[in-house]
């Protein structure tokens, strides 16, 4: 069999992954300027900022969660209080009814 020829590149060829990646590199270079290290440091800054945001959200969430726990306990305490008041009031009402 004759050797197959390499596919020829032409103006109508679809962009390859390599083309897309090269375009992305160009875009990023434009974004960060000529200093390539700046991109890395910006990424590190972004990760650090994301970690800070994550930590702050978690800390706020912990506090909000504790508030929810306390609200549940308060609801329980209020129910117990109402029950106790009713236990005191019921015999009082009966005594008052007898006295009338």
């Amino acid at each position: 069999m004759p050797p197959t020829s390499e596919p020829s590149t032409s103006d109508t060829a679809q962009p390859t992954d390599a083309d897309a990646l090269q375009a992305e590199v160009t875009r990023l270079r434009e974004l960060v300027g000529p200093d390539e290290a700046a991109y890395t440091s910006l990424k590190i800054e972004l990760w650090a900022a994301r970690d800070s945001a994550f930590g702050a959200e978690m800390a706020a969430g912990e506090l909000r969660g504790q508030v929810k726990v306390l609200e549940g306990q308060l609801a329980q305490a209020n129910r117990n209080r109402r029950w106790m008041v009713e236990r005191i009031k019921a015999p009082l009402r009966r005594v008052k009814a007898i006295l009338r």
């Binding site: 959200e57 969660g65 929810k68």
Partner: peptide, 14 residues
Amino acid sequence: AMVGAKLLFADGRL
């Protein structure tokens, strides 16, 4: 028939 998971909000709450 079906199984569910533990889902957390972004702030870590249930």
